[in-house]
Simulated scan of single mutants.
Amino acid sequence: MIPVNEPLILEKEMEYVNEALKTGWISSEGKFIKEFEQRFASYVNRKQGIAVDNGTNALILALRALDMPEGSEVIIPSFTIISCALACVYNNLIPVFVDSEADTWNMDISKIEEKITDKTRAIMIVHIYGHPVDADKILPIAKKHNLYVIEDFAEAIGSEYKGVRCGNLGDISCASFYANKVITTGEGGMCLTDNEELDKRLRQLKNLSFVPERRFVHYNLGFNFRMTNIQAAIGLAQTERIEESVKKKIWIGKTYNRLLKPLEEQKVIKLPVEKEWAKNTYWMYGVVLNSAPGLDAQEAMKRLAEKGIQTRPFFYPMHTQPVFEEFPWFRKESLPVSENISKYGFYLPSGLTLTEEQIVKVIKCIKEVLI
Rank of each mutant, 00 (worst) to 15 (best):
I2P: 00
E6D: 02
L8H: 06
L8I: 07
L8D: 01
I9D: 02
K12F: 05
K12Q: 08
E19D: 14
G24L: 15
G30C: 11
I33P: 01
K34H: 03
E35P: 01
E37K: 07
Q38N: 12
R39F: 02
A41F: 05
Y43R: 06
N45D: 11
K47T: 08
Q48N: 08
I50H: 03
V52M: 04
N54W: 10
L63R: 09
L63D: 07
M68W: 12
S72L: 14
S72K: 14
E73L: 09
E73F: 10
I75L: 08
I76E: 01
S78L: 11
F79A: 01
F79Y: 15
T80F: 14
T80S: 15
V96H: 02
S100K: 14
A102H: 11
D103C: 07
N106L: 12
D108H: 12
I109F: 09
S110N: 13
E113Q: 14
I116A: 04
I116F: 13
R121D: 02
M124H: 02
I125T: 12
Y129G: 00
D134S: 05
K137A: 06
P140M: 15
I141S: 03
H145D: 02
V149H: 07
A154P: 01
A154R: 03
R165S: 01
C166H: 12
L169I: 15
I172C: 08
I172T: 06
A175M: 10
S176P: 00
N180E: 11
K181D: 01
V182G: 01
T184P: 05
E187N: 12
G189V: 06
C191A: 14
L192C: 09
D194S: 11
N195A: 08
N195C: 10
L198M: 10
D199S: 13
L202V: 10
K206A: 12
N207A: 14
S209L: 07
V211Y: 15
H218Q: 09
G222H: 14
G222E: 11
F225A: 08
R226F: 11
I230G: 00
G235D: 01
G235C: 04
L236A: 02
L236M: 03
E240M: 04
E240Y: 00
E240F: 03
G253Q: 06
K254R: 14
L260C: 01
K261D: 01
L263P: 00
E264F: 05
E264I: 02
E265V: 05
Q266W: 09
K267Y: 03
L271N: 01
E276V: 08
K279I: 08
T281H: 03
T281A: 05
V287D: 00
V288C: 11
D296M: 09
D296F: 10
A297N: 03
K302L: 12
Q310F: 05
Q310H: 06
T311C: 13
Y316R: 09
T320S: 13
Q321K: 13
E325R: 15
E326P: 00
F327V: 00
P328W: 06
R331H: 10
R331F: 04
P336C: 04
I341V: 15
I341F: 04
S342Q: 06
Y344D: 00
Y347G: 06
Y347Q: 07
L354R: 03
C365Y: 15
